[in-house]
Design a protein around this nucleic acid. Structure first.
Lengths: 242, 242
DNA sequence: CATTTTTCATTTGTCAGACATTTAAACGTC
DNA sequence: GACGTTTAAATGTCTGACAAATGAAAAATG
């Protein structure tokens, strides 16, 4: 029933467990590849494949030279963002998550941040949001650039909550949806509408008005879903548009 | 300035980009290791290390035999859960995220699910929650088992929202916090309190009362934070309690 | 003695070649 | 046609070798 996993996978799991359980501390050096070969009684290639697996998950980093080796990596939030976003984006595309579902998740999560952000946002966060709003209002901006600015705006909102765990979790939801958002053709009118809502959201955050922020986010969520539905209707016509 | 990354990392990136961009479709077979060696002009070992990196991210799966090879894996939500939880747990422990911050994030996200769950939860979700409540009320339950059941209860609540994207994002927040929760010693009184709140949450969901669900979650969040603070106070006494 | 240079041992990165194992397809045999 | 056998192709593993990086010890130098 159970296909025996590769040796390299087993060894990777063994070391990973040691890291997760805390048997191996951050910064600690693993035995050299030769020593690991002896310990696990496998060849060096197999050990190396195991180590590469761990490196791909940012669990270890390797260094060459006399005092080199593999070290338990301190996983930083910034490092995890990238993987989180890649994974989320693939999940959305490979599982054919429809725009409505992705949008719902994104705004539900963002809504959760809004009260905290209203309470704690710094002047810096507010400045970032205002700057992105200005960019979004520029005529001649490509749809891609508009979307990227939209992401930056919402990232600032989320970061304003001052909770790195929330920021991390939301990075996936907010950024992974960008490819889906990029399918929307933003007319001048819809951009005006969005920029207007963004401005009012920034105003509400500046006034530290949590209720108003949430209400505006709900409005924006509804409007975004509406825009998305027109895209969904279009995609019906060209099902395999590659 | 920039350390040239390993060949295997470069090759992994090259293939990963092809997958993310859609150049390689789900289920498609990659060239054999020998062919990849030729294409990238490296040895087979290097190609293998690159493939192991991708396998560690669940981007490909390999199969032995005549028609075997490496295939672009369909990334399923269930596959991503595990990685998400491992990463989140490591982020919390390695960055010394305090209980309050983690707890805040968890309940903020869960709160976002509550209205949707009140609207859409199935009888099945409700039954799971009731079953976990029953388990939690049993005397003699270990703290670990109590926590595990707590996680299962909240997972059911989140799944009730019927949005796989939300469930995925929340898996990390809810499950990664379990190790921190496990540090709490649940007295008979605190268990009673929690079980009581869980029961009222289940009741509210059964009645599809979103407002009440959110209010009860807020109460539970406050109480959990309170319990966590007593743990934090204790940990001050034994800073390196290993 | 202090400083600079050289040597050197250690460790990871890469390569080449071999054999084992698995798997499905091709081939014979009945 | 059904059933066993062979075979080819692919991954999994092992061995041994060399290249490259790197810090530390040793040696040379002033």
């Amino acid at each position: 029933m159970k296909n025996a996993p590769d040796l390299s996978a087993q060894i990777a799991k063994s070391i990973r467990d040691a890291i997760v359980s805390g048997d191996l501390d951050v910064g600690e050096r693993l035995p050299s590849e030769a020593e690991l070969s002896d310990q696990f009684d496998v060849s060096r290639s197999t050990v190396r494949e195991a180590l590469k697996r761990l490196a791909a998950q940012s669990l270890i980093r390797t260094q060459r030279g006399a005092t080199g080796g593999a070290f338990v990596n301190k996983l930083r939030f910034e490092d995890a963002y990238g993987q989180q976003i890649t994974t989320s984006a693939l999940l959305l595309s490979m599982n054919a998550v429809d725009f409505t579902t992705a949008c719902e998740a994104r705004f539900a999560l963002e809504r959760a941040c809004a009260p905290l952000s209203a309470q704690r946002r710094s002047a810096d966060h507010l400045a970032t949001m205002r700057a992105e709003i200005t960019r979004q209002a520029q005529p001649g901006l490509s749809d891609e650039s508009f979307c990227a600015s939209d992401v930056a705006f919402h990232r600032a909102l989320v970061d304003g909550a001052g909770n790195p765990v929330l920021s991390y979790q939301l990075a996936g939801a907010v950024e992974a949806i960008e490819p889906l958002m990029n399918m929307i053709t933003f007319t001048a009118r819809s951009r005006d509408r969005i920029v207007g809502l963004h401005t009012r959201i920034a105003d509400a955050l500046e006034a530290r008005d949590a209720d108003q922020t949430v209400a505006l986010l709900d409005t924006l969520a509804d409007y975004t879903a509406e825009l998305g539905q027109s895209v969904a209707a279009k995609r019906k016509d060209t099902p395999k548009g590659n």
